[in-house]
Computed example of a mutant assay.
Amino acid sequence: MPHHFYIRFVRLPLLLRILLITSTLICFFGLFIHLIEPENFPTVIDGIWWAVITASTVGYGDFVPLTPLGRMTGILLLLVGAGFLSTYFATLSSIAVTKQDEYQKGESHYKGQEHLIIIGWNERSKEIIHSFSKTKQPLILIDETLNSNPIPFHHLHFIKGKALRDDVLLRANIQDAKKVIITADQNLDELQADMNTILTLLAIKGINPNVLCIVEILTKEQFNNAKRAGADEIIETNKLTSAIMLDSIHTPGMVNPLSDLLSELNGKKLEYRTTDGDTVGKSFKQITLYFLSKKTILLGIKKGDDIYVNPQQDLVIEKEDQLLVITQGGS
Results as ranks from 00 to 15, higher is better:
L299R: 10
S56C: 04
P68Y: 04
T296R: 09
L315W: 05
V80P: 07
N208P: 11
T296G: 03
L240I: 14
I307P: 04
G161L: 01
T43A: 07
T279C: 01
I214R: 11
K268T: 07
E39V: 11
K285Q: 14
Y88T: 02
I181G: 04
C213N: 03
L35K: 12
D321W: 06
M195W: 12
S108V: 01
H155G: 01
V64N: 09
Y290R: 05
I297S: 10
K227Y: 09
V168D: 01
T183Q: 09
E114G: 05
K282A: 05
G281C: 04
R171S: 04
I297L: 14
I26K: 05
I217D: 05
I21V: 15
F63L: 13
H3Y: 15
S133T: 05
L141I: 07
E127T: 08
G83C: 08
N210Q: 13
T237G: 02
L246V: 05
D260N: 15
G30Q: 05
I181V: 15
N256Y: 10
A55V: 01
Q192A: 06
S148G: 03
Y6P: 01
L69D: 02
T251W: 05
Y60G: 02
A163L: 07
Q175G: 00
S259L: 11
I7L: 15
D167Q: 11
Y6G: 00
D194R: 10
P2E: 09
T279N: 08
I235S: 04
T22V: 00
T73V: 03
P209Q: 10
G267Y: 07
G281D: 03
K285E: 13
L76K: 04
D276V: 03
E233W: 09
G106P: 05
D276M: 05
G330M: 10
I198D: 07
G206I: 03
H130S: 11
I33A: 00
Y103P: 00
Q104P: 00
K282R: 15
L14V: 13
Y110I: 06
H3C: 00
M195D: 12
D176Q: 14
S248A: 13
Q222R: 13
K179S: 07
K179L: 06
V280D: 01
R273A: 01
I182M: 09
Q286K: 12
L298C: 01
I117C: 02
L188K: 15
S248D: 12
H34E: 02
L258T: 14
R11V: 00
V64E: 10
V80C: 07
F9Y: 08
L262F: 15
R11C: 10
N122R: 11
G267R: 11
I244R: 08
L240N: 13
V80I: 15
L69A: 12
P2Y: 14
Q186C: 06
R228F: 13
L76Y: 06
N208A: 06
I142F: 08
